[in-house]
Amino acid sequence: MIRSFTKEVKIVPSEVTVKLLQQARQHSYNKRFIIDGFPRNEENRTAFDTIMKIEPAFVLFFDCPEEELTKSTLNRNQASLVDDNIDILSKRHKAYFETTLPVIITTLFVWLS
């Protein structure tokens, strides 16, 4: 199910993602985690708050030009991934700017205020 969502450049349902994070946290001896690329939308953030009931100690945000992201992804040294092509990357970037970036800004204010 997760693979099909990823292939279609759709966000995995928030409850699924957060439950996986919760399971990883419960089965680990580590008390601190870095969660890369999350939340991707407002529903992710809300589900995380509701299910996990924890707030991050900090949020790390890297800003990078779209051209550099595309170049880096197309040149990465991985076995040819189905979603590493210019059409899919364009969809990813569009989704990021329309959905993810606004929630990052909101998250910074909500979690860090």
Rank of each mutant, 00 (worst) to 15 (best):
L101N: 02
E42Y: 07
R92Q: 11
V82P: 09
T17M: 01
I2E: 07
N77G: 08
I2F: 00
T73M: 12
L69Q: 12
T99S: 14
N30H: 11
F5V: 10
L60F: 06
I51W: 08
N77P: 07
T100F: 06
E67I: 10
F48W: 02
E98G: 03
R45Q: 07
P102T: 00
I105M: 03
R76L: 06
V18N: 05
R92T: 14
E68Q: 10
H93A: 10
S113E: 06
L112F: 05
Y29H: 09
V59F: 11
K91V: 05
R25I: 14
A79N: 13
Y96L: 01
R32T: 10
L69V: 13
V82M: 10
E67Q: 05
A95W: 01
I35V: 15
D36Y: 04
Y96Q: 06
L20C: 15
I34E: 11
E68N: 05
R3T: 14
N30T: 05
L74T: 04
T6R: 12
K31Y: 04
G37P: 01
M1S: 13
K94V: 02
D49T: 15
S28H: 04
I88W: 02
A57G: 02
N85Q: 04
T99Y: 02
F97N: 15
H93V: 00
H93W: 07
R76F: 02
M52R: 06
S14V: 03
L101T: 02
D84F: 00
S4K: 15
V9N: 07
S80L: 01
D63C: 10
A47Q: 12
I34M: 13
A57F: 02
N75G: 10
R45A: 15
L74P: 10
T106A: 04
A24Y: 00
F109C: 07
V18D: 14
A24G: 05
F5T: 01
F62V: 06
F61L: 09
S80Q: 09
F109W: 09
E55F: 08
A79C: 05
F48S: 01
Q23I: 01
I2T: 08
I86H: 09
K94M: 02
S90K: 14
V103E: 13
K71Y: 08
E42H: 05
I54R: 00
L74M: 11
S80E: 09
L21S: 15
P65I: 05
I51F: 04
D84I: 00
K94R: 04
I11F: 14
A79V: 01
I105R: 02
Q78G: 08
S90T: 13
I51Y: 09
I35H: 03
H27V: 07
L108N: 06
K53Y: 13
N75A: 11
R25W: 02
K31E: 15
F33T: 00
V16G: 00
P65T: 08
A24I: 14
A95G: 01
K71G: 05
E8K: 09
K10G: 13
P13R: 03
E15W: 00
E55A: 13
R3L: 14
F58H: 07
L20H: 15
V16M: 03
S113P: 07
F109P: 01
H93N: 12
